[in-house]
Amino acid sequence: MIDVNVSLSRYPFRRLPCDEPEALVARLRGLGVTEAWAGSFDALLHRDLAAVNARTAETCRRHGDGLLRPFGAVDPTLPDWREELRRCQEVHAMPGVRLHPGYHGYGLDVPAFAELLDEAGGRGLVVQIAVRMEDERTLHPLLKALPRTDPAPLIPLLARPSQPRVVLLNALRTVSGEPLRRLLAAGEVWVDVGMLEGLEGIKRLVAQVGIDRLLLGSHAPFYVPEAAHLQLKESALSAAQAEALTRGNARRILPAP
């Protein structure tokens, strides 16, 4: 299985049971995960993203025997972000980047974001966008006014010549129904099931948008990784649907290393 949504290092506001890489890898392996796309919690609030990315790459090299695939952090509102993007690909051999627009304080309608999509698309990098990291009702008091990320401005950008491949993480509490269908039809864009809730949630989601654009994402170690996996059981997916969600769709985005 391929988990497209895990994070390394420390969540800023609490220690997590699996926030050491060995523990995270063991837990994921125990659930049958063979590949996990890993960003870093440090990217939320740290300003030195070059150092964050170097640590992410090093952690992925040292732990998991290839299970962890590093995704770098880039903030297109910071000076010289293109150099960050270059290093992610050319120095750290990362297959993609993970953006945190809410924590970095921009919307997807700013020109810098479009420029980043073009640059990443041109380089063949996958762009993950963390739409949320936690239920807004439980945010630390200092972050209670954290801006929401609206995915809608992404729709026209997906048609740009650079043809960016975009993976939205933790998006399904922000966008659903017809807006989600429009988004997924707009280009090379996928969503993970991190933060999906509701009885038989995956089954209902598949009925709305089909299976082809859905990915397994646990949001571990912030969430217990079993949550996403048990949702497969609750939704009683067919074998073909389960294979697409847990491996096939992700593999079409990113070939095996």
Partner: peptide
Amino acid sequence: PGRSFATQLA
């Protein structure tokens, strides 16, 4: 059913 049995059991 607002939440999933699965996520909460997990």
